[in-house]
Design a protein around this nucleic acid. Structure first.
Length: 498
DNA sequence: CGCATTTGACCCGCGC
DNA sequence: GCGCGGGTCAAATGCG
């Protein structure tokens, strides 16, 4: 969340606050743009124009988003006489004023957010400290843990000023931040903690240690020995998350009793879940003998048009093309969840973390609450924002980001926010620079997203309210979530309704 | 008749 | 220890 307004952050930190409207932005460009702008003679022609009105300086900032820059370049290109420039100048002035107003609003929102986040973080850290006292007695990596917290805090801490977006001091620092998150140490710490938790869970559920390739889970393990498969040392999922049982839950609007995701399922049970008048159906993948994948289908108690499908496990067989997208998506989500969810039960992720993802308005829920960490992908909102690379059946009202199916990993697993009022500004309009930074960082390091999730999770600690809601409503905070790294074996299949 | 679905019973973990 | 709830099994049932 701290990166909701990266550009804003950059702007604020690129100069002194008392000169925020002029010098700071000029400094920003002087560091990053001058090598390009200086050689252009047209810019010098533009300067006198800009100096006639102080707002023009601010327009320079707007160049970041390219809006004002476009207008100025038009002036440059056409070389209008001064009398023709006047209307344009007036127009630019008006745009600048508008820009100022928007910026003021943004500042206000930023401040409010910062205050709230400060309160949240302080509360969480306080809670985590208490928790750490118990855990540290059993942990040998005390220092690592502290470093981990610090590392994560770097990412989230709004800073002493309370302005969450003022933390990065410059683009350089932002890049440094991205680098620190993607470096081996940070990820290593994250994985270390994951491993530690896996050990804890393994003690609790010894049987899962014998699980094979699939994400560790109980079904087919203890009750169906025939399904047990020999463990291979090369299995990455097993190596990384030998004891975690992640679930990927998908919320989608559908009238169909069950979504068709490209796999064949056999119903093996149905139960009434507490708090939900609609029964929960249990399905097992029948595409291959011994496939451990299960899924649960249940309608949302609040809105029965919403179908909640929860996947668990990884397919042990080749998937049809129609099934790979969902499999990749859920795998990515599951891996992110597994790699990120350690001590906390819920994770806050900012949409700004994943600017490269097209579905910026989508939301996902990370819930590591017992017994299994679950990531919920909410596809019930903003269908317009979705892009269909694979047309769903007509009866499939829900949109699913199947973009680029093949390597969907790293693609968005994004869902609409529960709170439609949440201000979701198109990323590209507000913070292009930092967006690019993170895009590049994520693209460069497939583990980064997982590391981000882990880092955030680490500092978030336990949610203030651990009481579980009933049924599908045991829903954690709704948060924007990242796509994940591509290493997880396919967990589930495609996704469409009947 | 074979297969899928239904449904009650059973098992297990967790909280009190 | 007990009750509750989630998850699974397997016999019964339905359907093509």
């Amino acid at each position: 969340m701290a990166l909701l307004h990266p550009t804003h952050s950059l702007r604020h930190n690129s100069g002194n606050h008392d000169r925020r409207n002029s010098i700071q932005e000029m400094d920003f460009f002087s560091e990053n743009r001058r090598p390009i702008a200086a050689p252009a003679p047209n810019l010098q022609m533009k300067d006198p124009l800009k100096r006639t009105d102080p707002h023009h300086v601010n327009t320079g900032l707007h160049l970041v988003s390219g809006n004002s820059g476009t207008g100025l370049s038009l002036i440059e290109e056409k070389e209008k006489p001064k009398d023709k420039m006047i209307p344009l100048q007036v127009k630019i002035d008006r745009l600048n004023e508008e820009n100022q107003k928007l910026r003021s609003m943004l500042d206000q929102i930023t401040m409010n957010y910062g205050v709230l986040q400060n309160q949240l973080i302080s509360a969480i850290q306080q809670q985590k400290q208490e928790e750490s006292k118990h855990r540290l007695g059993q942990m040998d990596e005390k220092n690592d843990m502290m470093n981990r917290e610090l590392s994560a805090k770097q990412f989230m801490d709004p800073g002493p000023s309370g302005g969450a977006y003022e933390t990065p001091q410059s683009q350089d620092e932002t890049q440094e931040l991205s680098g620190s998150l993607s470096n081996n140490r940070t990820i290593g710490v994250v994985q270390e903690e994951s491993a530690h938790n896996m050990v804890s869970i393994a003690r609790k559920r010894p049987f899962v240690a014998d699980e094979s390739d699939q994400s560790p889970h109980s079904w087919g393990a203890n009750k169906s020995p025939k399904l047990a498969q020999p463990r291979t040392s090369t299995d990455e999922a097993t190596t990384e998350y030998p004891c975690r049982k992640a679930r990927v839950s998908v919320r989608a609007r559908s009238d169909a009793p069950m979504i068709t995701d490209g796999c064949q399922w056999r119903k093996y049970g149905q139960k009434m879940a507490k708090g939900n008048p609609c029964p929960r159906a249990y399905y097992r993948c029948t595409m291959a003998i011994g496939c451990p994948v299960r899924k649960q289908v249940q309608r949302c108690a609040e809105d029965k048009t919403i179908l909640i499908t929860t996947y668990e496990g990884n397919h042990n067989h080749p998937l049809p093309p129609a099934a790979t997208a969902m499999a990749n998506t859920t795998s990515a989500a599951a891996k992110m969840l597994l790699s990120g969810s350690t001590t906390s039960k819920e994770t806050h992720m900012s949409p700004s973390f994943f600017p490269s993802l097209p579905y910026t308005s989508t939301m996902a829920t990370l819930s590591a609450s017992a017994p299994f960490p679950t990531i919920t992908l909410d596809l019930t909102h903003n269908p317009n924002a979705m892009q269909f690379h694979h047309s769903p059946p007509p009866s499939t009202p829900f949109p699913f980001p199947l973009s680029g199916c093949g390597p969907l990993l790293g693609q968005p697993v994004f869902l609409p926010p529960k709170q439609p009022t949440a201000p979701m500004v198109p990323l590209g309009q507000r913070h292009s620079s930092l967006t690019e930074v993170f895009t590049a960082a994520i693209a460069a390091d497939p583990n980064l997203s997982a590391a981000l999730a882990a880092a955030i999770t680490t500092i978030m600690g336990k949610p203030p309210n651990s009481s579980s809601g009933s049924g599908s409503g045991s829903s954690p905070l709704k948060l924007p979530v990242a796509p994940t790294s591509p290493q997880l074996p396919q967990s589930c299949t495609t996704f469409s309704t009947n």
